[in-house]
Design a protein around this nucleic acid. Structure first.
Lengths: 167, 167
DNA sequence: CTCAGTGCAAATAGTTTGCACTGAC
DNA sequence: GTCAGTGCAAACTATTTGCACTGAG
């Protein structure tokens, strides 16, 4: 299993930037330098990130392309509304990942190394819809996080136990 | 579908209170009035609740059985460690529910009325384990929340649309 | 009698907001 | 030119912590 394993991507007609511009214009919102800088930056790399990590990666205060913290938060919310990003909470902080042009998937969360791993499973969605139908619940989406220990950490701790003669 | 639908319960040999006392003693932690008051209160009703709701339900400051806010937070954490409660985050705040003596289940979250509904599905756990096995991930547990609109809200909005002639 | 647990007040952390300025339209 | 968006500083909210006191063992 590899972290952030590429899952391929869904064919989309517009780049995230163009999609976002379209979204802004359709709502009479303005296409600002900050919004463009953020959409470009966020979609230049496919990783999970939180607001702090994003701030660190951005050009320093005063430099071209810098964006203030409040604007980062406001814009991340806009990305979520626009369907560009998915947000979820991990250890009490908001974590974001690409949604637009990216297939529906779920996550393993390794409690040892705290990394997130993506996986896709068709049957899961079918089962979800079946269960929802039985309960007459109209599904909009779902959030599944499987917690446990990833292969790597699993091996590491087995090795450690062996080395220490603890079995 | 009914909110907080009782799912029956798993046979357990000890009451939550006794289970908690056992947990405390096995770790050399003290059995205090506050901890007993909280375990009794929390397991006297089967509902989802957050720290604020719990504080409100507790006897007022000065009265018998009152517990301060920091202690409530500390003790809720102990309940989770002891396996008595499950904690999860909803709209940025911690929500708790009974875990001890209660079957594994998942949730529907209605985004309209903000209520939580429980459901049980055997096949879901099987599928989870199967997927984890494929990815060599050692499962400790999972968290699944299906978001959407519950039957009641669904009907209410259909009625409203009809009434307003908006199709 | 000792030290873990408690309550208080204050700190913390992530996020949000009010407001005056700026730049997109 | 107008008003939505921005940056700053300050507010906010849920939760956590330092510390002196209290009570469980």
């Amino acid at each position: 299993m590899s972290e952030q394993a590429p899952l391929g991507h869904v064919a989309v007609s517009l780049s995230p930037r163009d999609r976002f511009v379209e979204y802004l214009q359709s709502r009479g919102m303005r296409v600002t330098q900050q919004r463009l800088a953020l959409v470009d930056h966020v979609f230049s790399r496919h990783e999970h990130f939180d607001a702090d990590q994003l701030m660190e990666q951005l050009p320093a205060s005063g430099a071209e392309g810098h964006v203030s913290r409040p604007t980062v938060y406001r814009t991340l919310g806009e990305f979520v509304d626009a369907g560009l990003l998915r947000k979820f909470i991990l250890n009490g902080r908001a974590v974001y990942e690409h949604d637009y042009g990216y297939p529906q998937h779920d996550h393993f969360h390794c409690t040892q190394c705290n990394r997130l791993f993506e996986f896709e499973n068709e049957k899961l969605v079918e089962l979800r819809d079946e269960v929802a139908r039985e309960h007459r619940f109209r599904v909009a989406g779902h959030r599944l996080i499987i917690t446990g220990v990833c292969e790597e950490c699993s091996r590491a701790s087995r090795r450690a136990r062996h080395k220490m003669n603890m079995i």
